[in-house]
C-alpha cells in the first residue's frame, strides 16, 4: 500500500490536471500609509482595547515603572534575563528567568515587565519576538499583569510594515489589548486566560 504522503500528493496532481494558470498577485494594497503622529495613534489605539497607556520620556521610564507597580501593589515581578537594570526598580522583588522559572513561580508572581520588538499604531498591536528584554513566551503569559515598554522608534504604521521588520522563524506573539472573548452573545469582555491587565509605557 502506498504511503499517505504519496497518495495525497498524487491526488493533488490528478486534481490539478487542468493546470490552472498562475496569475500575477495584485499587490496594489497599501504597504504604508500616512497616519500622522504614530506615537499619538498607537497610544489611542492600544487604549481602545482597554489597555492602559502611559507616555514617558526615556529617562523617566524607571520612575513611571515605579509608580505603576506601586499603584497596583505589585511586589513580585518577573523579568527576562536581559531586562535593563534601570527598569528593575526598588520596591519590587525581581524574579529573573535564570535559572528558568517554574510555571508555579510564574503563576505566583504579581506581574511581568518586558520590552517589545515592534508595535503597530493602526491596530494597537504590540509584537514580542523573544528578543532583547522580552524573554521566552511563558513569561508574558502566566502572570496576570503585563507591563510593556515600547520605544517610539519601535512603532510602525500598519501591518505590512511590522511584518517586514520581523523574523518569522522566531517565536512571535502579537498582542492587542488584554485577553478577551466575544463568545457570549458576541459581546466583548476583557480578561480570560492571558494577562487580564496590560499596561503600556511609550518611551519618547
Amino acid at each position: 500500500m502506498a504511503d499517505a504522503r504519496s497518495v495525497v500528493l498524487g491526488r493533488i496532481r490528478a486534481a490539478l490536471a487542468d493546470r490552472p494558470a498562475a496569475r500575477e498577485i495584485p499587490r496594489s494594497y497599501d504597504t504604508s500609509r500616512p497616519l500622522g503622529d504614530l506615537v499619538e495613534l498607537a497610544a489611542e489605539r492600544i487604549a481602545d482595547y482597554r489597555a492602559e497607556v502611559h507616555r514617558a520620556a526615556v529617562d523617566d521610564v524607571p520612575a513611571t515603572i515605579s509608580r505603576l507597580l506601586a499603584e497596583r501593589g505589585a511586589r513580585r515581578m518577573v523579568g527576562p534575563v536581559d531586562l535593563p537594570a534601570s527598569w528593575q526598580v526598588d520596591g519590587a522583588e525581581w524574579l529573573s528567568d535564570s535559572p528558568t522559572l517554574s510555571i508555579d513561580q510564574l503563576d505566583g508572581a504579581d506581574g511581568v515587565l518586558t520590552g517589545c520588538a515592534v508595535a503597530i499604531a493602526e491596530t494597537g498591536t504590540i509584537v514580542l519576538d523573544g528578543g532583547v528584554a522580552q524573554g521566552r513566551r511563558a513569561l508574558t503569559l502566566v502572570p496576570d499583569y503585563h507591563l510593556c515598554v515600547v520605544r517610539s522608534d519601535q512603532i510602525v504604521g500598519i501591518v505590512p510594515e511590522a511584518l517586514a521588520r520581523l523574523e518569522p522563524t522566531r517565536p512571535l506573539t502579537f498582542i492587542s489589548g488584554p485577553s478577551a472573548t466575544s463568545d457570549i452573545e458576541l459581546d466583548r469582555v476583557e480578561g480570560v486566560h492571558g494577562p487580564r491587565t496590560l499596561h503600556v509605557i511609550i518611551a519618547t
Partner: peptide
Amino acid sequence: RMNPYTSVWTGVTPG
C-alpha cells in the same frame, strides 16, 4: 482591527 493574540512558531525553539 486585530484579534487580541496571534501566535507564530516555527518547528521547535530550544528553551
